[in-house]
């Protein structure tokens, strides 16, 4: 049984409300879940499907919407990578945080906020991490305009 089938089974009756799309083919299978249910979905993935590690959170900016990608690792039995995705609107991208479930989510969510401008609701330390605190904009957005000047440093050359 693929992990996607196991995951759907683990969610039980809630699966219908949680899962938006399951993509079981190709070299990058994933399940798209609703943004509000990400904590519930991630818990089910950990407790029922053995995804112990949340090893990366990142995002992609599509011109129409944004996507948060969660990569999980199953370590102890049947080693493998599992992937959840969440779609968020571009003008108000907010997702509940997973930082209280996995400590690793703390920095990776901050990085996603920093570079893509996706907010993580309930994050304990919601600040930029790689860029300076007074930086304007989120560089990995497709419509990002780099600054021409930063604290007297000319950035045009």
């Amino acid at each position: 049984m693929s992990w996607i089938a196991a995951f759907t089974e683990a969610l039980g009756d809630a699966a219908e409300n949680v899962i938006e799309e399951a993509h079981d083919e190709g070299n990058h299978p994933f399940v798209r879940v609703r943004a509000e249910s990400i904590v519930e979905a991630a818990r089910a993935l950990r407790d029922k499907c053995g995804a112990e590690m949340l090893h990366q959170i990142s995002g992609v900016d599509y011109a129409e919407h944004m996507e948060v990608i969660y990569h999980f690792t199953r370590v102890t039995r049947d080693p493998g990578f599992l992937c959840l995705k969440v779609s968020v609107p571009r003008d108000n991208p907010v997702v509940p945080t997973l930082a209280h479930e996995w400590r690793a989510a703390n920095w990776t969510e901050r990085e996603t906020w920093d570079l893509l401008g996706i907010r993580f609701d309930g994050h304990p330390h919601h600040y930029r991490i790689l860029l300076a605190e007074d930086w304007v904009g989120h560089p990995l957005r497709k419509d990002y305009e780099p600054p021409t000047e930063y604290h007297g440093i000319d950035c045009t050359q």
């Binding site: 990366q56 400590r103 690793a104 703390n106 920095w107 990085e111």
Partner: peptide
């Protein structure tokens, strides 16, 4: 995106 081990390990 690059999943950098040092970044995650440092936390």
């Amino acid at each position: 995106f690059i999943r950098a081990p040092s970044f995650v390990n440092l936390q």
